[in-house]
Amino acid sequence: MRITCPLCGTRDRREFYYYGDAVYADRPAGGAAPAAWDDYLHLRDNPAGETRDLWYHEAGCSAWIEVTRNTVTHAILSTRLVAERGGTDGAAPKPRTKGKSA
């Protein structure tokens, strides 16, 4: 499996560390309702199909990357820097597409 780092280019999977669902980057604002925190902390989709998650280019440039990939075909569909996706620090996240079943 190879992942395209937006900075370094296409690299072997061994250079990357997997963190988890990209929802981790959409932290609720400080005063958000408990239900929003419950969702953020505990509830995850488990799609058969397209999903987004966070990867760290640990053995490369040290950038955090959002990877859109397909859990059925293992295809890497797109990548972008977490720094460029928005939605951090309680700011309104960009709309997130729910995983589709294949």
Partner: peptide, 22 residues
């Protein structure tokens, strides 16, 4: 190193692994 370095030349730079070392 898990990167193809044939053709790597002055002016290029990269971050990768040497074995398990950054």
């Amino acid at each position: 190193v898990p990167v193809d370095l044939r053709g790597f030349e002055p002016g290029q730079a990269l971050r990768s692994q040497l074995g398990h070392m950054m």
